[in-house]
């Protein structure tokens, strides 16, 4: 699908604009969860890891693929779980406080 580099670059540039637009609306209050959450999203490289490990090919590529899956899965699972744990702690003021 992305064999034409121009298409890939188009997607890249548009995605960068979307990224800056969306992220500039995240309040500083949530910047730590933003970092851990976006970090988990960068674990999307797991898709590449699955392709690398899951294709009939040379041994070294499979080993790289296996290690990539381990690292990317730590990133994905660890990142989303810890973000969820943090976000669950952000609570609004109780009624009795105000």
């Amino acid at each position: 699908m992305l064999d034409d580099p121009a298409v890939a670059l188009t997607i890249l540039v548009l995605a960068l604009f979307v990224g800056i637009e969306v992220i500039s609306k995240v309040p500083p209050l949530l910047h730590t969860p933003l970092m851990s959450g976006s970090n988990a999203i960068s674990g999307i490289t797991i898709v590449g890891a699955l392709i690398a490990a899951g294709t009939e090919n040379r041994d070294l590529a499979t080993l790289f693929g296996f290690l990539a899956i381990v690292f990317a899965t730590i990133n994905v699972v660890g990142g989303f779980l810890v973000t969820n744990r943090m976000l669950a702690m952000f609570k609004p003021r109780k009624k009795s406080d105000s």
């Binding site: 997607i11 890249l12 990224g19 992220i23 910047h31 970092m35 976006s38 960068s42 898709v47 590449g48």
Partner: peptide, 20 residues
């Protein structure tokens, strides 16, 4: 890998990190 989802997700995170 010519994979659009990696390009998009990577760009989102790259933009986020640069913004911060």
């Amino acid at each position: 890998l010519s994979n659009a989802s990696l390009v998009i997700a990577g760009a989102l995170v790259g933009a986020s990190g640069l913004f911060l």
